[in-house]
Simulated scan of single mutants.
Amino acid sequence: MPRSAATDRRVHFAGGRYGSGEVSEEELMQDLGEGDDELLGDAMTEDLGDEMDDDGNSEAEDDEGMGDDPFNPVELGLKEINNLAHFGVSSHRPGSGVAELLSDDLDKYWQSDGQQPHQLTIHFLRRVEIRAIRFYVDYNQDESYTPTHIVFYAGTGHHDLIQFAELTLTNPVGWQDVPIANSGGGADGHSLCCWIVQMHIKENHQNGKDTHIRGIKIYALDDQSLGSAAREPARGPRMDLSANHVPAPAAHGLNEQSLRELLDAFERHPISNTESVREPVIR
């Protein structure tokens, strides 16, 4: 039984060919009958779904790109030194303490459970040269638990802590950098050299009482990434002891022949580092 023109148009429409221009909108509406409302709705939903998928994927990619953290410690010659420190908090809820704070899972967090200001104390096992301090907060998830005013202190002990940074945050989402440039430490004056770092959370958004911190990272210079030249201690000018080149300034009053005889004597009778040193004898 041959199909009618209207049936062919419906087939074209259902196959997504309406969008390609084979069937105009006027022709389509004329040929679709009362029983074709479902077909029209399905096709429109399909077309809208395709557009939403395309836009959705694009927006998802954009959101993912915006969420990427540009901080790359390897490229900056830094290494994390959390393992060199003991972390302590002034208070915490069960299941939301230091372990959750140091976890790489940003869905976990430290939640305080006491009076403000809430304190996080980082006590290092030795004196460190800090180049970066970063912590993670998320206002979209935590709202009134998100800090808005934080003061940072550092020193050699609890008795000599000095304020070195202060942050005011407004609806923050993501990793926050603590300003430590010009702290005075290191070869360039941009390092924070200390034993202890303290973080005092004085206020939260919406006058919230307790706080959420979802992660913290401390970084120092990575000697391995700076190259062997940076790790070698400073040395004086090297002397070439070959027979064909004996610099005159190194002779210290000896002529060339005497210096060569002295070097030959050292080669024939080397001094061993393992020889025992005799005790001085009083005569």
Rank of each mutant, 00 (worst) to 15 (best):
1 M>R: 14
3 R>P: 00
6 A>Q: 12
11 V>T: 10
15 G>K: 13
15 G>C: 14
15 G>Y: 14
19 G>Y: 14
20 S>R: 11
21 G>T: 04
23 V>W: 01
26 E>Q: 06
31 D>K: 09
31 D>W: 09
32 L>V: 11
34 E>V: 15
35 G>W: 13
41 G>I: 07
42 D>L: 10
43 A>R: 13
44 M>P: 01
48 L>E: 01
49 G>Y: 00
58 S>W: 15
59 E>K: 10
64 E>S: 08
65 G>K: 15
66 M>N: 02
70 P>C: 03
74 V>P: 06
74 V>I: 15
76 L>C: 02
77 G>P: 02
79 K>C: 01
82 N>A: 11
82 N>E: 09
91 S>E: 03
96 S>H: 15
102 L>R: 01
103 S>Q: 06
104 D>T: 07
107 D>R: 08
113 D>L: 02
113 D>Y: 04
117 P>K: 05
118 H>F: 07
118 H>V: 02
119 Q>G: 04
120 L>G: 04
121 T>K: 08
122 I>R: 05
123 H>K: 12
123 H>Q: 12
124 F>T: 03
125 L>E: 08
132 A>Q: 12
132 A>V: 13
133 I>Q: 03
134 R>E: 11
134 R>A: 05
140 N>F: 08
141 Q>Y: 12
142 D>K: 05
143 E>W: 11
144 S>L: 10
144 S>F: 15
144 S>D: 03
150 I>D: 00
150 I>W: 02
153 Y>P: 00
154 A>D: 07
168 T>N: 12
168 T>C: 09
169 L>A: 03
171 N>C: 04
172 P>L: 05
176 Q>A: 07
179 P>R: 06
179 P>I: 04
179 P>D: 08
186 G>K: 08
187 A>H: 14
190 H>G: 01
191 S>P: 05
194 C>K: 04
195 W>N: 13
197 V>R: 02
201 I>N: 04
202 K>N: 09
206 Q>M: 07
206 Q>S: 09
206 Q>F: 06
208 G>T: 09
209 K>L: 14
210 D>N: 15
212 H>W: 14
212 H>M: 03
217 K>Q: 15
217 K>W: 13
219 Y>M: 04
220 A>V: 06
224 Q>L: 03
227 G>M: 06
228 S>K: 10
242 S>V: 06
242 S>A: 04
244 N>I: 06
245 H>P: 00
247 P>N: 13
250 A>K: 00
250 A>H: 06
250 A>D: 09
251 A>R: 13
257 Q>E: 09
257 Q>D: 13
260 R>C: 11
261 E>D: 09
262 L>M: 12
263 L>H: 01
264 D>L: 04
265 A>M: 11
267 E>H: 13
278 R>P: 15
279 E>F: 01
280 P>D: 11
281 V>M: 11
